[in-house]
Design a protein around this nucleic acid. Structure first.
Lengths: 350, 350
DNA sequence: TTGTACGCGTTATCAG
DNA sequence: CTGATAACGCGTACAA
């Protein structure tokens, strides 16, 4: 690998000034054909392209957004990033991906990095909203000095930024109502944290919905189960083995599709037939839902659309004076076989 | 969002020189405590962090690598990126993700972008290796002017860069041998392209292995089926409906786990019991393999380790004079239930 | 302990 | 049509 060529090298080698090189590179008119050819040849020979750092320094813009997520290996976040990436690309913008692992808060290091890079905007996604509000608002304020900030978050979070709200209310309501319509009366929820104070969170909304429908909200039906398949397996085992057969729920709503996958496996191990003996509903509508056995009914929060909205808002936020507002995208229930809808209404004891 | 503060603003507001601001920011010794405090306060008040563009320009380094993949929503590439990201982070390096969609070649635009960004290295991954060699070598040569290049590719590809070779040979051999040991004689392969000229590609190696074991390589057993679940479904349907029952294969090797998932679904639809009636082996060992029904036996190419090696090599490539070499990481067969290993040796007709 | 001045690669402005 | 030069924000000699 040779030494990197600069605009000076090209100018010298072509026997012109740097200004002319710039004109050729940017395709500006007003350069004699012969000169253009001569310069272009030197550019090609040296595989020259202008340094983005120097360009950014000169222009004061980076034409780049950042997306901050816990882990890109999580399909939900991959969807968000992917969508943001192409939406930004359509607007001549690149997107930088930043992973936080399991950090519950937005660390000062990340904030610093974002400012250092002089991003044109940031989009936060992930379960950072249970963290102490103080950190978050501090981070927001620091970032707001330099760039517009957007966040995909639960409804009702008071954050000084563009809020793209996940429809967590319907995310909990839709499965419960659907199952209720099918006749289910004992409905369990596994995964995530049940006892969050925030009324907008899934667990709380789930409980609320049960009460609204006059269904029992037996604490034995609410098991914290983490966010993955092993969590789902463990939760089902723990819940069912603590209950006499006649008090088993007839349906389980899970925190996400991964938990559902684990739950399904454990239920089969215990000899249950799905969906006849037990109905299951997941969340996120991941790619494998149509291919699980039985195909998994799931709630779709439309992460791609949320990310797209976020990027659009970030890109216009420079001009617009609107500092802080929120957008809500409705959740959708995608009915497949695991909820037993094909079996029609059935009568279950309360 | 206010105007972005520069080192001059901080210096002026704190009543010191820019040099002192730099010293405070970088934690250099030799600054009076009182001065440091005074400056730090101004820095905090303005949420100041030095501009990375200016720093890069000054230092001539970007401390950044690029990873180029077709799509981050593909779990295989997500693993690669994730692994590269953290390996680079451990070495104080950031990683830029570039997606190519389905572009079969490395487009000149991407090459330009990489050079513009003055990356400290690039890692290419994805199915670009079937493209015309001319493009690839041109791209490599242009890039080699500016940065070390690594690629995760099939064995035997002659490319002027650091080659991290996928163990595609064993990737085809391991499933066939395993199934042969279990007594299978009619083994089919679905997915990807069977008739690639490149002897190192999966389909070709698969055929070679069949011949080596004296097994029939009936063309009816080799169906192109794309790279996803729908492809798997269609391929199974097409293959089996074209064959009388007595000539059906007893085992199917699939291009990847997604194809396997589709194949499983289609086989069940056709009333097949797995693995008793049909054995299945996938590839990539994705997270859901233990949770499919039956749990999917799969080949693991260890993409995370490959990415890690790639990043390590890129980071030392600056100093080292070694321009081009290759590293091979062995594939592993992860045996679960879909291959029917638990059923032991069974006798099948040829 | 602190400040001054220069160079990094580019673009824009203005003069020729 | 082309060239000279200032500015962008920062780090680093070197000077004070």
């Amino acid at each position: 690998m040779k030494k990197k060529a600069t605009i000076y090298d090209i100018a010298r080698e072509a026997g012109v000034s740097t200004a002319t090189v710039t004109r050729v590179v940017r395709g500006d008119p007003g350069v004699r054909e012969a000169t253009r050819d001569k310069v272009q040849r030197v550019i090609d020979r040296n595989a020259y392209a202008p340094s983005m750092s120097a360009q950014n320094l000169e222009s004061g813009r980076s034409k780049a957004l950042a997306v901050v997520v816990p882990s890109i290996s999580n399909l939900y976040f991959a969807k968000i990033f992917d969508s943001a990436y192409w939406e930004a690309a359509d607007n001549g913008c690149s997107v930088r991906l930043i992973q936080t692992k399991d950090n519950q808060a937005i660390s000062p290091e990340i904030v610093n990095e974002l400012i250092r890079c002089r991003m044109d905007g940031v989009l936060f996604a992930g379960n950072i909203w249970s963290a102490d509000r103080a950190d978050l608002n501090d981070a927001m304020e620091r970032l707001n000095h330099y760039m517009p900030v957007a966040a995909i978050c639960p409804p009702g979070v008071e954050l000084n930024c563009i809020r793209i709200e996940s429809d967590l209310l319907n995310c909990a309501r839709l499965p419960v109502r659907h199952l209720h319509t099918l006749g289910h009366r004992r409905i369990a929820f596994i995964g995530g944290s049940m006892h969050s104070k925030d009324a907008s969170h899934r667990g709380a909304t789930f409980l609320e919905q049960l009460r609204l429908l006059g269904l029992p909200d037996d604490p034995a039906y609410h098991v914290d189960a983490g966010y993955d398949m092993e969590g789902g397996e463990r939760a089902v085992l723990r819940m069912l083995s603590a209950l006499p057969r006649e008090r088993w729920p007839s349906a389980i709503v899970t925190f996400n599709d991964l938990v559902a996958l684990g739950a399904i496996r454990q239920l089969k191990k215990m000899g249950q037939h799905l969906p006849e003996d037990m109905a299951i509903v997941g969340c996120d509508n991941l790619f494998f839902c149509p291919y699980s056995d039985p195909p998994l009914t799931s709630v779709d929060l439309h992460p791609a659309e949320m990310a797209q909205s976020a990027v659009r808002e970030l890109l216009v936020a420079r001009e617009s004076a609107s500092r802080s507002f929120s957008i809500l995208r409705d959740a959708t229930l995608v009915v497949r076989e695991s909820c037993g809808a094909a079996l029609g209404f059935r009568h279950f004891d309360t």
